[in-house]
Design a binder for these strands. Structure first.
Length: 1113
RNA sequence: GGGCGGUUAGUUCAGCGGCUAGAACAGUGCCCUUACAAGGCAAAGGUCGGGGGUUCGAUUCCCUCACCGCCCACCA
């Protein structure tokens, strides 16, 4: 294979570089893997599938470190399962990310070309966004590849591509037909500067000093004893122009009682410092009963009698209504109702059938509904309204108050709540009047709807429950259906605590607003009669008949909903009833569409919420809704159903917690609704990466890390290992961020101050470099600093350690002759290594199965570094230079490295693949009992089994003792400052069992600590001048006749005695405690006793040594 | 306002009822011991955020306070 002919048999392993060159390795193996098509998966009835769909990254920009974590973990799972023999499929793709992407492109447009989308027009803007998408999608896919992600690239999807579009249209159509989609009003965050709606998360709040205005509305024709005014309060007086009612509570006395009860309860459980405050509120409440309540009761009666008040300035009579929204315990107890500009008021308006008057133009000026104030901006209108009210004596008082004002993150201008028509997906039960006549026999929730029978051997998703599910949707709605899947365990969440946020959120069963006032996205497939169409028509009913005829002609393609109950208000404030048919079309190319448009219907200009298409991702990417309709496409041999049936439900979803509600819940919901089964069996929520200050990383803060910078400096393997190493079960992980000076490569800690600067002077070399903020030519001309984190250094060093250990093995495989190994030939360190290898294999396998990535990474790190490198490789060195014992050493060494590489491969793919191929050249056949040629790539090498027959507790115990003694000897050497080359001699006083265990290891003491044993056993005496220590039940005397620093030994022994005494005292106290000895478990007490004895022995021997040393001074 | 997490060595994290609370990095001392100085060996560094409780025993479980963070809701 030419791809790895970079080293030939004639080249010696000694020529391999001393440091792992990650760059070339990454390039080489990425190309190789792609050429070999290892990542491609096709349905295969003989193998179990393991499927992951990628959380599609937004095409708004390049991937950041959070994505790197997310995708690394997915790749670790996929690679592990692939090695374990599963037919592993990882579906890649990207998300169009509606608002976010349109916003970036629009911003660019404005900055670079001073053009707005209105000037450009819909089609051209969408073209521009597609161009952007092409660039960034490509970049994202490259980034994933550079990280080593083993996605099935042939199946790459984009949420706006034709496959996904069909799934969206089919879903929307079904929901529309099932009356799960309806049209309603909703307040949107209107950015008057950009003239667009922005999402909630693009809104930031700023606390500013504002006012609370109390305004009087005159009562019309007040009767004797009735109040002349009703007083209301607002922070936004100009909205009064759109008021259509004033509300008072329908039972103010009861409401006050309830408020009082609540306060009493709160008082009972409140901490001392809050009590005074609550008591004050209670006092206020009592006073209110005297002063406000009688008024409110009167007003309530007036409201019930249909009395009205006069809206000042507009001179418009508006209703006095009784509604629970008005809280008698607050303000005057009455509240103005502006249904078109406040969400709560909108609800009241709906309940009380109030007119809704929109007083705003899209540009934020007042429209004709504002009468004399038309044309003014909100700001000016506010001033004018207040002035006018004051001059009419209707301004009761003005309070200062801090108010929070919503601002658009994009234009930094204040947001206006703006009432707009929106489409919603219904989350609650379907049993209400609106849907009763809908599609009673809609086949909602059938398992794999319309999918042909599955071939034998493939599990049909959940047939026993399908009828039940059909009913459960009918009776309890989409949200409940998705909740049930988690409650009954069809979907399992790891860590389990996150199931709570999922259930809490769905439990609210809020309807899902799915329309967005944007141009980038799936256009809503609904057509309505245009104004032109309506005025050109001879009669509306005539058109309605024609539309119904169209539906009868294409019953599968056309669905109609009538909204005769929709009320909209004209400029006068009078209600008018508008009859509007909304027609939903299923197919993207349909003759029904042409016929409908000929009738004067136009498509809804809005697009669907991004999450609508993301919600379908697991099944849409796997081919749902199946082969295209014959009329659409001639390709009836499409294997789509097979794919869906085989790979769906997917195995696990790996994502971060902030989209559990927005995305995870909705995928479950649509999966159940469309396919009849959950989209994934497991959900793994990984931690979020924060910077050193505990803040979320983001480009807008300047603390974001580009994985490519990390890859360039440390390598993809180090990136991956570092990320896996920190994927613990905690909610967040912190990562200090640094600039790397492009001149001197020194790192500069990133602070909240310097991270926003366009240029920084390197404190090391004094030269300037630029950052992501550079925009001026003099800044951009400077070299840019990479933004990285030192936390990847550990991982990079680990990779290098692995590389060098591999080099060592390769260098010592000269003359390797494949042969099976007789267990009797194994040296003690071989048996130890094989035992440890089996144990670690079990640990790593188990950790990965339970999504404990950090545990797996740590186990491998410790094992590879401390046991394989520091002990096994060191110990095997002697045998390698001995012709007789060399072959077995080589066999076990090759076998061990082989196993270690496989265990590491999912986390560290490039390095392991590189070594795998090198190893294949030196040891083309390996194994202990049975020899076999290694797999042609480690990607498809079988996952190692945890072979319990190699596990050997006796050997592991022997090693523990050996390591303890070795450590003690090294410590003496360090303390006494004895040069490594100078040999030392030691004697060990211990029992005969220990002698048997340790005496055979004499050669290793010599090799690894330059220490020669002179005597073993119970009778061993201390040499005249010695350093001593106790370890593993042995007393060790190091003969220091030639070179002793007596003072150092005395100091050390004194300290040791002190420590032992303190420890001993604590232990004695514990054992003297009768309740401990009688109540604690017997084994715990026994262990304590043993330890006590051991401590006494150690103290005795240390004290003796100390006394001995003192005599020498 | 509701919910969920966190607070352990200078830093980043493990440990989650009982061995003298561990690791890595940084800092310290010694060593270029031919796989690796991105290395080796070793020492030092911690009243486990504060206070209460449960228990023979608490870093670990419960309550509470403080601080930090995240999510959701609301703010006439």
């Amino acid at each position: 294979m030419a791809a790895y002919a970079f080293i030939t048999m004639s080249t010696s392993a000694i020529d391999l570089p001393k440091q792992f060159e990650h760059g070339p390795a990454q390039e080489r193996w990425t190309a190789h893997w792609l050429a070999k098509n290892y990542f491609h998966a096709e349905p295969d009835q003989n193998r179990q599938p393991f499927t992951i769909v990628i959380p599609p990254p937004n095409v708004t920009g390049a991937l950041h470190l959070g994505h790197a974590l997310n995708n690394t973990l997915q790749d670790i799972l996929i690679r592990t399962k692939r090695m374990q023999g599963y037919n592993a499929l990882w579906m890649p793709g990207a998300d169009h990310a509606g608002i976010a992407t349109q916003a970036v492109v629009e911003k660019r447009l404005l900055e670079e070309e001073k053009t707005t989308r209105h000037q450009l027009g819909r089609e051209k803007l969408v073209d521009r966004i597609w161009q952007w998408k092409e660039t960034y999608e490509k970049r994202i896919l490259q980034q994933l590849q550079q990280m080593g992600c083993s996605c099935d690239w042939n199946r790459t999807r984009f949420t706006l591509d034709a496959v996904c579009a069909r799934a969206v249209r089919h879903t929307f159509f079904r929901m529309f037909k099932d009356r799960l989609i309806y049209r309603g009003k909703r307040l949107v965050n209107w950015d008057t500067f950009l003239q667009t709606a922005v999402s909630d998360d693009e809104v930031f709040h700023e606390t500013v000093k504002g006012h609370f205005w109390h305004i009087r509305y005159p009562i019309i024709d007040p009767q004797p004893g009735e109040p002349e005014f009703v007083s209301v309060a607002t922070t936004r007086p100009e909205t009064m122009l759109g008021d259509t009612a004033v509300a008072v509570h329908p039972d103010p006395a009861a409401a006050l009682d309830r408020a009082e009860r609540e306060l009493q309860e709160k008082l009972a459980g409140a901490p001392q410092k809050e009590r005074a405050d609550i008591q004050k509120q209670l006092d206020d409440l009592a006073e209110r009963r005297q002063t406000v309540l009688p008024q409110l009761i009167k007003l309530r009666d007036m409201a019930n009698a249909g009395r009205k008040v006069m809206l000042p300035l507009m001179q418009r009579p508006i209703s006095l209504v009784a509604d629970e929204w008005a809280k008698p315990e607050l303000g005057s107890g009455c509240v103005k109702i502006t249904p078109a500009h406040d969400p709560n008021d909108y609800e009241v308006g709906k309940r009380r059938s109030l007119p809704m008057i929109n007083i705003l133009n899209p540009d934020g000026t007042l429209n004709e509904n504002a009468g004399a104030y038309k044309g003014l901006t909100i700001k000016k209108a506010r001033v004018q309204v207040v002035t006018d009210l004051e001059s009419q004596g209707l301004l009761e008082r003005v309070e200062d108050r801090e108010i929070e004002i919503a601002h658009s993150d994009r234009s930094k201008t204040p947001i206006e709540p703006y009432l707009a028509d929106q489409w919603f997906v219904k989350m609650r039960d379907l049993d209400d009047a609106e849907t009763a006549g809908g599609s009673a026999n809609a086949s909602v929730g059938n398992a794999l709807r319309g999918v042909p029978e599955a071939p034998i051997g493939v599990a049909t998703p959940t047939s026993p429950t399908e009828r039940h599910r059909g009913r459960s949707l009918q009776s309890s709605g989409l949200a409940q259906m998705a909740m049930d899947a988690v409650i009954d365990g069809r979907v399992q969440v790891h860590p389990p605590r996150y199931a709570k946020s999922y259930l809490d959120w769905l439990g609210e069963k809020r309807d899902w607003p799915v329309s967005r006032q944007l141009w980038w996205g799936h256009r809503i497939p609904v057509w309505r009669l245009s104004d032109e169409g309506a005025s050109a028509a001879e009669s509306i009913t005539g058109i309605q008949q024609q539309v119904r005829a169209l539906r009868d002609k294409y019953p599968e393609e056309v669905s109609i909903q009538s909204f005769s109950s929709l009320r909209e208000a004209g400029p006068s404030g009078r209600q008018s009833i508008m009859v509007g048919d909304s027609v939903c079309l299923r197919g993207e190319i349909s003759s029904a569409q042409a016929e409908l448009e000929a009738l004067g219907f136009v498509q809804d200009p809005d697009v669907l919420d991004t999450w609508f298409s993301s919600a379908l991702w697991p099944h849409s990417t796997l081919g749902w809704p199946g082969p295209a309709l014959p009329s659409d496409d001639s390709d009836n041999e499409s294997p789509d159903w097979e794919k869906l049936r085989y790979f769906y439900p997917t195995s696990v979803l790996v994502t971060s917690r902030d989209i559990i509600t927005l995305w995870v819940a909705r995928m479950v919901l649509t999966g159940l609704y469309n396919v009849g089964d959950v989209p994934f069996r497991q959900v793994y929520i990984h931690p979020k990466i924060l910077d050193a200050y505990g803040e979320t990383m983001s480009k807008s803060k300047g603390n974001g890390i580009d994985p490519l910078d990390v890859i360039a400096k440390f390598g993809a393997d180090a990136l991956r290992f570092g990320l896996a190493h920190m994927a613990t079960e905690t909610q967040d992980v912190r990562m200090p961020v640094e600039f790397e000076c492009p001149h001197c490569q020194k790192t500069i800690e990133q602070t909240q101050k310097n991270r926003v600067l366009p240029r920084i002077k390197c404190p090391q070399c004094g030269q300037d470099f630029s950052t992501q903020w550079a925009s001026k030519p003099e800044d951009t001309a400077l070299p840019r600093a990479a933004v990285i984190s030192e936390r990847f250094e550990v991982a990079r060093n680990f990779c290098n350690k692995l590389w060098n250990a591999s080099r060592f093995v390769l260098m010592n495989l000269e003359g390797y002759e494949p042969a099976p190994v007789d267990r009797r030939e194994l040296a003690v360190e071989d048996r130890w290594m094989l035992s440890r290898l089996a144990t670690v294999t079990g640990q790593v396998t188990e950790s990965l199965d339970g999504y404990h990535f950090a545990d797996a990474a740590r186990a491998l790190y410790d094992f590879a570094w401390d046991e394989f490198c520091s002990f096994y490789v060191e110990m095997v060195k002697t045998r390698l230079s001995d012709t007789e014992s060399r072959p077995v050493a080589q066999h076990v060494l090759a076998y061990s490295l082989d196993t270690l590489l496989r265990l590491l491969h999912p986390i560290v793919p490039f390095l392991t693949e590189e070594v795998w191929h090198l190893l294949a050249e030196y040891a083309p056949e390996r194994g202990l009992n049975k020899l076999a040629a290694p797999a042609e790539s480690i990607i498809i090498a079988p996952w190692p089994p945890a072979d319990a027959t190699f596990q050997n507790a006796e050997i592991e115990a022997r090693f523990a003792k050996f390591q303890a003694l070795l450590g003690g000897l090294r410590e003496v050497r360090a303390r006494q400052n004895i040069a490594p080359k100078t040999a030392i001699h030691f004697a060990v006083r211990c029992d005969s069992d220990t002698v048997k265990l340790l005496q055979p290891m004499e050669a290793y003491f010599a090799a690894m600590a330059g220490a020669t044993a002179t005597a073993w056993g119970t009778q061993v005496q201390s040499p005249a001048l010695s350093a001593n220590f106790t370890a593993a039940g042995c007393e060790v005397f190091v003969d220091l006749a030639e070179h002793i620093d007596v003072a150092a030994e005395i100091a050390r022994n004194e300290k040791e005695v002190e420590k032992l005494q303190a420890h001993l005292a604590a232990k004695e106290k514990k054992l003297a405690n009768e309740s401990f000895t009688s109540r604690a478990p017997a084994d715990v007490v026994a262990r304590e006793r043993e330890q006590l004895q051991e401590l006494r022995d150690r103290l005795a021997s240390t004290a003796a040594a100390l006394a001995d040393l003192r005599k020498r001074i």
